[in-house]
Structures are given as structure tokens and as C-alpha cells.
Simulated assay, not measured.
Amino acid sequence: MSDVAEQKSSSSRIAWIDNLRAFGMLSIVLVHTGRLDSALDLYVASFCMPLFFFISGLFVKESIRQQTFIDYVKTRVQRLLIPYFSFSIFSYFLWFFVIGKIKGDVLPANPVLHFFSNIIYGVGGGEWLDYNTTLWFFPCLFITELLFFFLIRLPSHKTLGLALFGLSVIGYFLFKVVWIDNFRLPFGADIALTAVVFYGVGYLVKPYILNESFKVWYQWPILLLATLAYIVFSNLNEESAFIIGNFGKNYFYFYLAALSGILFWAQISRLTKPNKLFTEIGKNTLVIFPLHLLLFPFFTGVLVFVFKVPKSSLDHSNIVALAYTILSVLILIPIAWGLNLYVPFLLGYNSHKKKVNQ
């Protein structure tokens, strides 16, 4: 394996991090097809959403310590909420006029109220954000980053670690004990109590994981241990669903499965040679994540109504899930190029600046 300098492209991207983003993104798309074997669902669900909060934490800048809260909020509104509103508007119109009719969904009697109540409340799962449930991630990450703005000001990493542990307990048992009848806080603030733990862990391990020691320090024993822990604790915890605060049946199993899964895929990403496809997926998760779910009804419609494929044959098929995933990525990467080139402000970027590479 080449060193870090060789693993960076001309735009200073870290190739293995793009690999890691790509593995995470492909895992999420596979699960969202709804056609993946349930045994595989178990392993994907245990790590994929914690992974993206973890990666976000890896790239926290120390300069936020010097920012005022108002200035920080402004930057996060631009980077997260503008894309959230942009994709929400597009998703809603596409769902209301096309996708909802294809799927046979019950359309709201008052679409304006339905849209604004969903976008303002900003949580996923159940009937919330039913026009594109993936959008929950943007407001939840927004709240997560606001929480971390205060946490990073704690006097030491030890204090920060203790605070994260406390939040991990509160976030887990909030859904186990307190919340009833599917009650949720706006913008996923309740989920953010757990999300910020992975975000904070990413920040704390950044000095170790973004250097060569992570790759060479007992690489194979660590990979073996991570693999065993990932498999064992994912099975012990049973299937989780981060979006609705279902973290499985055991606090320790949940965190051990998630962290070992992240470590496993980080090691696999280190061992995977940089390639153009994974780099493009890693660069464009901001577009692939919120749009992939909108493509699946069209794929199904073409197969069922054009090629006369029985709809029942598309269910619970790993091959169909893989095909949907590959098609989604191949379609959305060029769309991401176009959005970045012509309307970067919709993605939260200043139009006069190139996309920030993390």
C-alpha cells in the first residue's frame, strides 16, 4: 500500500475515506431497495448510519472553537439546511405528481399543509417525510453539529469522552423508556443524542485514524478482531433502525456492533485500492443519499409494465437489490456532476467556490 501522500488525489481527497464513504453509501442504497435478504440487512443496519456521523466527526475543524455560535449556525444552515430544503421541494413535487401515483400511495387532501408540517418537523420514519424519508439525515446532522459546537469547548478530551458516554446512555434509554406512542422531537434532536456520540468518536480518533499508523499498526489482527466483533454483536443485538431510534435490544451490543462495524469497513477501505467509481461515489454522497430512493419506483415500473416481470419475483432478491443499487449510482453520479457545476448553491456551496473536499 502506498502512503497517505500517494493516496491523495490532486484535489487533496483521501482515497480510503472515499472508499469508506462508498461502502457506506452502497450499503444504505442496498437496504433501501427493500429487497435485500434480511440476514444481510442485519449487518448493514448495525453500522451504516453511525458510520456517516463518524465520518463527519473526522473532519471537524478546530477553528470552530473560535467561531461565535451565530456564525457557526449560519455556516451549517448553508451546508445542511439549504440542501435539505432543496431536495425536499424537489422530492415532494416528484412524489405528489408522479411517484405517489405509481406506488398507489394515498395522497394528502391538503398537500401544502402536509409538505410544510413534514419539512418543518424534519423527522423520518412512520408517516413522517413519507415523500422521501432519507431527508431526515440533514436536520439530524444539523442538530448533531450544533450539539458538538458546545461539546468541543469542554476542557479536555477526557471530559469530552465522559460527556459522550453520558449522552450515549441518555440517547439509548430515551427511546427504550421515555418515548411512547412514537413521539419524536423536531429535527431528530432525540436521535442526535446518539448520533453525536459517533460524531464525537470520529473527532477524538481523528489524529490516529487519518495517518499511517492506523494502516500498519497490527493491521490484520485488528481486522480479524473487528470482523468477529462485528458479526457477533450484530447478531446479538438483532436488527436496528437508527432513523426511528430503534437501537436494538442491548445498549452494549448496539455500540459494540456499530463501532466494530465502522472499524471493519475502515480497514477494508484501507486495503481497497483507489478506483474511479468509489471516488465518485465518495465525492457525491450528498446527492446520492437524498435522491436514490426516488429512483426505485421507476425501476420497478419499467420492469413490471414494460418488460412484464412479475412484481412478486422482485421481492426479497439480492440480485434485484444489487441491480437497483448499481443503476441508482450510475444515474446519480452524472446528476451530481451537473448539480455541482450549474447549481452548487442548491447543495450548500458558494457558487463562486469549488466544492469543499473533505
Rank of each mutant, 00 (worst) to 15 (best):
K206P: 03
C48W: 05
P334I: 08
P310S: 06
F299G: 05
I99H: 04
F345S: 14
A226S: 15
I152L: 09
M49C: 02
Y342G: 08
D41C: 10
S168F: 09
N275M: 09
A5V: 10
I55S: 00
V60F: 13
L107K: 09
G261Y: 05
T144M: 03
V178H: 13
L224F: 14
F150T: 05
L327G: 07
V178N: 10
Y84C: 11
F165Q: 01
P310Q: 06
G104Q: 06
L160N: 10
L81M: 14
G122I: 03
L225S: 14
V306I: 15
F214C: 15
V329I: 14
E62H: 13
L286R: 00
F278G: 00
S313Y: 04
G348R: 01
L277K: 10
Q267L: 15
W95P: 00
Y218M: 15
G161S: 06
G126Q: 02
S9I: 08
L81I: 12
M1F: 12
V123T: 12
Y251K: 06
A22G: 04
G104I: 09
Y342H: 13
Y253M: 03
N118T: 06
W128V: 04
L20E: 06
D105G: 03
Q267A: 00
K354F: 11
T227P: 04
S46W: 12
L81W: 00
K353L: 14
G338P: 08
S328T: 11
W337N: 09
L135G: 10
S10A: 14
V197N: 08
L141D: 02
I331Y: 03
S328M: 04
A323H: 03
Y349F: 12
Y199W: 11
Y349M: 04
L263D: 02
V31P: 01
F138D: 00
L259D: 05
R184V: 06
R21A: 11
T134Y: 03
T33R: 01
L303R: 11
F247N: 03
F175M: 05
W95F: 12
V201R: 01
L141H: 01
F59I: 06
R13F: 00
Y92F: 15
V4C: 05
A266T: 15
I262A: 02
A258F: 07
F296V: 14
I82V: 13
H32T: 03
Y199A: 02
S88P: 09
R35F: 03
K74M: 04
F54S: 09
V306Y: 12
G202N: 08
K206E: 04
G248L: 06
C48H: 15
F214T: 08
L146P: 03
I231D: 01
G57S: 05
G124D: 03
F87E: 01
V343E: 01
E239S: 08
G125T: 10
S38N: 10
N132K: 08
T133Q: 15
Q66A: 12
L271N: 12
N284T: 13
V178K: 10
